[in-house]
C-alpha cells in the first residue's frame, strides 16, 4: 500500500531542464513544456525545491552547478526528480543531451547524479535518442524513464507532452490514493503516447521504457514478472491531497492502521478472486469496501 511511499516527510528536489531546440518551433515547444512543468510543480508542491532551466540558461555549467548544490543540500531520505526535455543524440557509444554550448553526455550526468546523497532518484529523460542513455544512467533503486527505447530513435518525441499531462490529470492517479507515483505517470504517458501514434495512423518513432531494477534494460510494461516497476511504484512524484497530513497525525494512527488492514484484506480477496464464485466475491468485496469507506470517513473528520 502506498502509505509507505517515499517522500512523505522528506524534501523533494524537482529539476527540469529544457535543452536546445535548434529551430524556433522546437525552442518554443521545449521551453513551453519546461514552463508548464515549473508552474504545475509550484501549484501542487509549493514547499518543494523547484529549479527549472530553459533557453539560454540551460547550459551544461548551470546543470552541473545546480546538481552540485543539491549534492550539498540534500539528505539521504530526500528525493530528486530530474526531467530532461529536448533533443538528444547518440553515436552508438555516447548519448548526449543537446544544450546551448557544450552538450552533456550521459556519462557526465551519471557522474553528477552518483554524487547526490539521495537514494531516491527519478530521472525522466524525455529527449529523442534517450534510450541511448539507459546503460550510463541505470543504477539499482534509481528510477530511470526514457522516451525512446534506443539511441537510434532520433525523431523529436511527444512523450513529454503526455508526461506533463499525466502529472496534471487526476486520472493518472490510478489507485486514487492522492499520491501520484512515477509508475503511474509513466503508464499514463506511455499509453497516451502509443495512442497518439495509433490514432494518427503513424508509425511510432518512440517507445518509452522504464528501468528501476538496475538491469540495464528498460521495459515498456513493468510487472512482477520482469521485476521492473517496484521502486517506481513507491516513488511519489506528486501529493494531491490530504494523505501526507493524515500520516503525520498521531490521533489517527489507529484508524490508519485499521485502514491498512482493510486494504490488505481487500488485496487478499482480489488475489483469491479467480477461485471464488462471483456472488461470494462481490459480497465480501462490498463488505470490506464499506468498512474501508467508513474508516476513511472517520479519518477525514
Amino acid at each position: 500500500m502506498l502509505v509507505l511511499v517515499w517522500g512523505l516527510r522528506a524534501e523533494t528536489f524537482y529539476f527540469t531542464v529544457a535543452g536546445l531546440g535548434g529551430e524556433p518551433e522546437y525552442e518554443q515547444r521545449f521551453s513551453g513544456w519546461a514552463k508548464d512543468l515549473d508552474k504545475l510543480l509550484h501549484e501542487v508542491e509549493p514547499h518543494a525545491k523547484i529549479k527549472t532551466l530553459y533557453g539560454a540558461d540551460a547550459t551544461r555549467a548551470n546543470v552541473e552547478g545546480y546538481l552540485r548544490e543539491v549534492a550539498k543540500e540534500a539528505k539521504p531520505e530526500d528525493s530528486v526528480v530530474l526531467m530532461l526535455i529536448g533533443h538528444g543524440t547518440y553515436d552508438e557509444f555516447d548519448y548526449k543531451f543537446n544544450l546551448p554550448g557544450p552538450d552533456l553526455s550521459a556519462a557526465q550526468l551519471a557522474a553528477l547524479l552518483d554524487k547526490l546523497p539521495t537514494a531516491h532518484q527519478l530521472i525522466v529523460n524525455m529527449t529523442s535518442a534517450s534510450g541511448g542513455s539507459i546503460l550510463a544512467l541505470e543504477k539499482p533503486k534509481r528510477v530511470l524513464i526514457t522516451a525512446t527505447k534506443a539511441g537510434t530513435e532520433k525523431n523529436a518525441t511527444v512523450f513529454p507532452r503526455y508526461w506533463i499531462e499525466g502529472m496534471r490529470d487526476p486520472a493518472a492517479d490510478s489507485d486514487k490514493n492522492e499520491i501520484v507515483t512515477a509508475l503511474e505517470v509513466f503508464r499514463y504517458a506511455e499509453e497516451k503516447t502509443s495512442k497518439f501514434y495509433e490514432t494518427q495512423k503513424r508509425l511510432s518513432t518512440e517507445h518509452a521504457l522504464i528501468e528501476d531494477a538496475g538491469k540495464g534494460e528498460g521495459v515498456k510494461i513493468p510487472s512482477a514478472e520482469n521485476g521492473e516497476g517496484l521502486t517506481a511504484g513507491r516513488f511519489a512524484v506528486l501529493h494531491l491531497g490530504a494523505a501526507a497530513v493524515q500520516s503525520r497525525d498521531p490521533a489517527k494512527l489507529a484508524l490508519l492502521k485499521q485502514k491498512e488492514e482493510l486494504e490488505a484484506a481487500i488485496d487478499d480477496l482480489k488475489y483469491r478472486k479467480a477461485s471464488m464464485a462471483v456472488q461470494e466475491y462481490r459480497g465480501q468485496l462490498q463488505a470490506l469496501l464499506l468498512e474501508l469507506a467508513k474508516t476513511q470517513e472517520a479519518l477525514d473528520k
Binding site: S174, D175, K176, N177, E178, G241, L262, E263, I266, K270, R282, L285, Q286, L289, L290, L292, A293, K294, Q296, E297, D300
Partner: peptide, 19 residues
C-alpha cells in the same frame, strides 16, 4: 461503484458514493 473501488479501494469520492 464496486468496480471503481475494486480498482482503487482508497478512491474517496467512490467511497462516499458507496456509503
Amino acid at each position: 461503484v464496486l468496480s471503481a473501488l475494486e480498482a482503487a479501494p482508497s478512491f474517496k469520492p467512490a467511497q462516499r458514493l458507496l456509503l
